[in-house]
Nucleic acid binder design. Structure first.
Lengths: 204, 204, 204, 204
DNA sequence: AATGAATGAGCATTCATTCAT
DNA sequence: GATGAATGAATGCTCATTCAT
């Protein structure tokens, strides 16, 4: 019986992933999940007590691992990578394993307990950026008038990464290329623009 | 009576803004809006004939002003600003009082007539970026392997601008400072990072 | 004040007649009646406590007069008209005075206390027909196997009359012509048909 | 399960028939139907996807059979029955088990797809009557001053037939007797009455 | 007296959850 | 264990009726 149970549980989770991915937590239909799992609606409730529990069951380990990885103490990390690059790298490596759950967690979890995860991640990156950049910027003689800029940069970074991950689902090579190009071009575009006096004036 | 009416209309709009902001157009509840506005469900319909009409009443002026500004004919513009900078500048000039509505329009309008506005805006910026950058990048000897990168950059730009507008509603000066810093720091951060061999290796 | 009141009452009644005539009791809208009467919705309730009361106020005198005329004791009638022809004649003369209320009463009163009036009228005519015809038919040697036939004939008569009245609203001459032709042709059509052997066989 | 399902489906249909018969399609309440069927409102929707679908499910077979029979090509009929008698005969052959549905179809279907069926039927019979009678009446020297009389006769015929079908559901013999008596008595009643001078004067 | 804004129960329909089998 | 029928509260919306002004 246990074998059968596990098989059904798997098919529920599989169908749930499809549904949550497509519709998000709020708009996902338990009926659709059960139907696509090949079981009766009521039977799903033998495995999970509610839509929320099902969602959390799927997302919790991923969320745990992710928050452990990302929000854990970076100081404990022996290697001396710049912390932000480290975060980006960790997101990318994390994505490789649990890409679907990861996207749902960050983009489709409205209404669930995870609905703030994306903002938390942005806040973390913001903090890392601050820690990391403050001294370097000072060394370069750049003054940051408004600390909120770190929040902006962090959210842009996440937005870019999520768009890339969404578009290139499963194609790790393309993901890495796009992320590195994103960073590089972000650089070059504005470097070019800087030379344009009208553009520069415009940003006075 | 008119005074009372206006007061209620305002409280409906205020409650609706909260609700649309929190749940999005589709998941917003008219009953909740009415309750939070302190009126009976039926009474809301004296002010707005449908959920859609309420949503559009709030969003339309913002949408009109915005699409007119952004999607209007850029060629007709006499000055010779780089087109993308122009778009950015126009978005920047678009913040004053409607930033909440603007955010809802771009992020919470699924199910309404505005549901594609954000992607359309990103597509427009993507197009402008391509037009503008292709020759300049060639001149710099930079090869774009994946055209999708322009889409990423465009969406990041929008994300950054939206966050700024959201945060700084009404503070023109702060918005201009943050946007210019955003562009500048995007530049500098990765310029600095480029010097880091581990970071560079990581982006191979 | 009383004068004003009467004027408003009249305009309510007039608007109500239009509305009941067009939509029937059930689907009539109090709002529409008030609007067309040129008063506020709430004010209508100073004159009539409910939709039902308004309907009844308009219909009661007509209904009273009609039932008095039609359902009263025919024996008390001095002249010796055949009773059924009398009923038809009375309906026609009644209609001349209160045609609109009459039609509403018989055709648009579903949901009100008058919803059975039409059936009652048919039952009455059925009864009159029975009383009147039994002896005459016996004298002619015609045997009625099924008493329900009188109900049929009565309902057909009413149906014909109502259709005529509905079509020829206000054109009394046309009404009289059509009713007499209806009776005459009913006669002739089947007289003609009777000569057709196939038709006769069909009615074996 | 299937047994239970059929039982409930029947009770829904039974309750729906009662409700549609009493209130008509438009004013019928799904809640009332569900309550009278002894089930929860939501459960009704497991059996029928909408009020319209429930109505059509009940009415469609009757409607199909009826319109096929009546509005089909009469020319294709090999036998040489007078066309009107043919229509009457066909309606007569149409009673068996569906008289309630048939009455709803013709009298209580406003708001549904069937709302014009009765008038269409009357129009058809009116047309047949005109075609058929024009020459015969001319031959008899009878002048029809108002063509609308055919419409009246057609609607009376339908009314009579419907009343008979309603009353005698399933009793083929009684239906045939009543219809032939209806036609015969319509004839004889006024033939008798014609001899009464007061009656004749009254129809001047 | 009169206004028309406000109420709240009603409508058809949906869906997470429970329950009889 | 499993089924899917059943529940009932929720949705957007309407309208007879009431109430503050």
């Amino acid at each position: 019986m246990q074998y059968l149970k596990d098989e059904i549980k798997s098919s529920i989770i599989s169908a749930a992933l499809d549904e949550f991915e497509e519709k998000g937590f709020n708009d996902a239909s338990i009926r659709t999940i059960a139907r696509n799992a090949g079981i009766a609606t009521g039977n799903l409730y033998r495995y999970f007590n509610s839509k929320e529990e099902l969602f959390n069951y799927i997302m919790e380990p991923v969320s745990e691992r992710f928050t452990g990885l990302i929000f854990g103490d970076f100081k404990a990390d022996a290697n001396n990578l710049p912390v932000l690059a480290d975060v980006v790298d960790k997101i990318m490596s994390f994505y490789e394993k649990d890409s679907r759950e990861f996207m749902i967690l960050l983009d489709k979890s409205e209404g669930s307990v995870y609905q703030n995860l994306k903002e938390n991640l942005i806040d973390l990156i913001e903090k890392r950026m601050k820690e990391e950049l403050r001294s370097k910027l000072k060394a370069e003689g750049i003054i940051i008038a408004d600390e909120f800029i770190f929040h902006i940069l962090a959210s842009m970074l996440i937005e870019g990464i999520l768009r890339i991950l969404k578009q290139c689902k499963g194609d790790d090579r393309r993901i890495r290329i796009l992320i590195s190009q994103m960073l590089a071009l972000n650089l070059n575009y504005f470097e070019i623009m800087k030379k344009d006096p009208v553009f520069s004036r415009n940003l006075k």
